[in-house]
Amino acid sequence: MGLPMELRQNVLITSVDKLVNWARGASLWPVAFGLACCAIEMMAAGTSRFDLSRFGAEVFRPSPRQADLMIVAGTVTTKMAPAVRRIYDQMAEPKYVIAMGACTIAGGPFQGSYSTVPGIDNFVPVDVHVPGCPPRPDALLWGIMKLQEKIRTQSIADQRR
């Protein structure tokens, strides 16, 4: 909230916001990492039937430094959780997280188990939850479009806190 009230509707800020949000939404490069069966559906989303690349999101970066989006696809065990958090920490701002599948949302079929994290909200901030067990590739595409909608509402002014 760095901007004074009377400048909130400043033409320059809104148009820069538009450009920046458009660019960020149109090129969401995911980290290439998957945990369980949801990752298979995530891979299927990149194939010819569903084609993630139409949204410019097919550039799976091997290094988290260059990625914008972490798709947590699969059951997160208590042993794996520190690694997931570490990948999130290694990503450069601005970064977004999609929780894909029932396991990442609330533990899924393993809820209450001694070894499963009941939802990744416990250790990383999640932008979009994609339900399903596992979600179909089109559901993941829906999640990415939801994330683009969310990015469109951001403002540079709000981030300067």
Binding site: L19, V20, W22, R24, A26, S27, G56, D68, A92, E93
Partner: peptide, 11 residues
């Protein structure tokens, strides 16, 4: 263009 603008503004 979108990729370039995004990379420019990334940390």
């Amino acid at each position: 263009v979108a990729d370039a603008v995004k990379l420019l503004l990334k940390e």
